[in-house]
Computed example of a mutant assay.
Amino acid sequence: MAPTLRLLAAELARRCDQDGPHADGTGTGGVAEMERAALLPPGKLLRPLLFTESAAATGMRRADTLAAALGVERLHVGSLVHDDVIDGDTQRRGRPSVVARYGLPNAIVTGDALLIGAFREVAAHTPASVPDARRLAVVQTLAEAGVDLCRGQAMEDELRAQGDRDVDRYLRMISLKTGALFRASCLGGAQLAGAPAAAQHALTRYAEHLGRAFQMADDLLPHTSDTATSGKSALSDLRNARPTFPVLLCWHRTNEQGRAQLSALLAGTLPAETAMETLRVLLRESGALTQARAAARAEAAQAKAALDELPATEARAALHAVADLAVDRDR
């Protein structure tokens, strides 16, 4: 994966540096500065990596995918800027979030600009050799993913407001909120490459299982990794009463007393630090952490199995490695 990640990081930096003055005199400072603060230094670049390797696995040169792949990154980062607004989070990737650094109005505008800019990257900056029909297919896939992401965010808020403990509903929610951009990355890469339907279906199945594995593992981070390592507040999910995978598993595995404690924790009746320590005890004693890890690894295994329908290439090997890393990480 390293060569592709270097290509993507270099292209992202180059594009941010090129975002100079526009015809109306804007472009330096303002939104361009805030977009740069959100995009650089980059995160894992996982979604653009998936886009590029999915396209490469179905026959496209990686260099021809970079603009569209980074369009997916803009869509992802824009959604994170808005997530931090919703959750009131002051940290993102171990540094001040856009809302903490620039304020609420600027964070909303920056998130909007990033989301809209994703479509510009695909429509205007992919190579001229790519047929318009393929570009349109990718734009449609990204648009559908954006809507699904919003549906997932709304569903998460419903689960939180209703105190819903249904694991199946949680899985449907993460399939929308997290899985949407994983599917868009893999399917979009295959569409840009003009891949046959069978390959597109295989990569879509891979992405669906990978998205679930990734989110399940992400929900474990507050309980298995410190804030300095993970780059995110361990208290955010608890402070926002957000339903997470290990907490839901714990609810169904613990006794009546444990459920009463969980209800109190999620209701915010205890100081956050005390609540987190109590939650960790409940998760450990119920075996929820072990079960959550096992479920994440099972999803990763199904993701890898979906790749068997693709030719054995370096790109397929990279996608295989992503599935392993998705559930074996500390950030």
Rank of each mutant, 00 (worst) to 15 (best):
T4L: 03
R6G: 06
L7W: 02
A13M: 03
D19I: 00
D19F: 15
G20C: 14
H22N: 13
A23I: 12
T26P: 00
G29R: 05
V31K: 07
M34V: 01
E35C: 15
E35Y: 00
A37E: 11
A38Y: 03
G43P: 03
L45A: 05
T52M: 11
S54Y: 12
A56F: 13
T65C: 15
A68F: 08
G71S: 11
H76A: 10
H76E: 07
S79N: 13
V81D: 12
H82F: 14
D87N: 07
Q91N: 12
G94H: 04
G94T: 11
Y102M: 07
G103F: 02
G111L: 06
D112V: 14
L114R: 02
A118T: 08
R120W: 03
V122H: 06
V139E: 03
Q140H: 13
A145N: 06
G146E: 02
V147Y: 07
V147G: 04
D148S: 15
D148Y: 08
R151P: 05
M155P: 00
D168N: 09
Y170A: 12
R172V: 09
K177E: 04
S185C: 09
A198V: 07
G211D: 01
A213T: 05
F214D: 01
Q215P: 07
M216I: 15
A234N: 15
L235A: 12
R242D: 09
V247Y: 06
L270I: 08
P271I: 01
E273S: 12
L282C: 09
G287D: 06
A288Q: 02
A288P: 07
L289V: 14
T290S: 14
Q291K: 11
E299Q: 11
A300T: 04
K304G: 03
K304V: 08
A306C: 09
A306F: 04
P311A: 07
R316N: 02
A318S: 10
A318H: 13
V322C: 12
A323S: 10
D330H: 15
R331I: 09
